[in-house]
Simulated assay, not measured.
Amino acid sequence: MKKKLALILAMCLSLSTLFTGCSAPKPEKEAGNSPAKETGDTFDGTSTDYKVALMIPGNLGDKSFFDASFEAIGLLEKEFGMKVDYVEAGRDASKYYSAYVDLCEKGYDLILTVSSNGDDALTQAAEEYPEQKFINLDGQMEEIPSNVYIMAPKNNEMSYLAGAAAALKAKELNEGVIGFVGGMDIPGINEFLVGYIEGALEINPDIKVAASYVGNFTDTAKGKENALILYNSGIPVIFAAAGQSGIGVIDGAVEKGKFVIGVDSDQAESLKDSRPDMANVIITSAIKNIPENAVTIARQAMNGEVKYGSKGFYGIKEGAVGIAENEFYEKLMTEAAREQIKELKNKVINGEIKLTDPTGLTTEEVNKIREDVRP
């Protein structure tokens, strides 16, 4: 549905107040391809009439990133009463473009997606369907089409808290080294690493961080192999920023009686029924609140408030990221440690702690940060 009629334009002002009573926080800053950004049209109708689709450029069942995005469907239905369709496009990137085209042809008001896996396909579809609106709930695209909006969670902020948690757990166990297993040695994953290192150094300026990479986000066996190497060297806790490969890291922690920090969703909560042994070694998870972020941006899209062609950065202050504070966190982390992490969280929100912006770091700068704390 494309709201371009003069009648609709005349009604925009009055309709813009339809959802403002419960509007969510705006991003801290925005970046894009040009100084002037145009918002979408205010939706003419009730939220139950608003048609939304979610394109998942991967597979469900990872107990992490894609599963978190899928949870957005239920939350959007609950919050707005809307019917949300989705397509699980799998790992074959050659199928992403056709998936987008199929959704565009069906006339959705908004097409959501997650990750940068399908950026090329998204760009092509956006150019070919200029009236279609797209929002990536967790993207890193730099050259942003005029009908695409990128939500960029501040991975370094949640990872900062994860690093503090890891260092505090290591301190409790009289250890001075912690681990990190990333999916791939790429900028998006090194955002997690840089924040993790800074959080750990906040607790222990002398701490060492051993980092390794699986090489992909789907190989649980290799994830476990990487984890076992680190655990066997005496490392007590690993932050697994590796997608589905991170399940292997958790399995390694179970085998060795060690600990792990999950990523993207509350992995202990998602595993406690099917794999309680895994849940019981996850001290916390660095969480992107993707379902809640979907509600935030859908509301803004209906209000005509989204600045397409740009990117918004969302952190702890905006409620977009954080760490899991569940029963396992309370059981596996001391009260004093939890209180210290809470204080650090508040300092980030208040601006008392300024973290390194990893999006502007060169490869050489990331390498130096990594080498400076290598065991």
Rank of each mutant, 00 (worst) to 15 (best):
D62M: 11
K63Q: 10
K63N: 10
K63L: 08
K63C: 06
S64Y: 03
F65W: 11
F65R: 15
F66E: 01
F66L: 04
F66I: 01
D67N: 13
A68T: 11
A68I: 04
S69F: 08
S69V: 06
F70V: 07
F70Q: 15
A72S: 14
A72L: 09
A72Q: 04
I73M: 01
I73C: 01
G74Q: 08
G74H: 12
L76W: 08
L76T: 12
E77L: 10
E77G: 13
E77I: 15
E77M: 11
E77P: 09
E77Q: 13
K78I: 14
K78L: 13
K78D: 12
E79P: 05
E79D: 13
E79Q: 15
E79H: 08
F80H: 06
G81L: 05
G81V: 14
G81Q: 02
M82G: 05
M82A: 09
M82H: 02
M82K: 02
V84Y: 02
V84T: 15
V84C: 06
V84G: 03
D85R: 06
Y86K: 00
Y86M: 01
Y86C: 00
Y86A: 00
V87Q: 06
E88D: 14
G90T: 02
G90M: 03
D92V: 00
D92Q: 00
A93L: 06
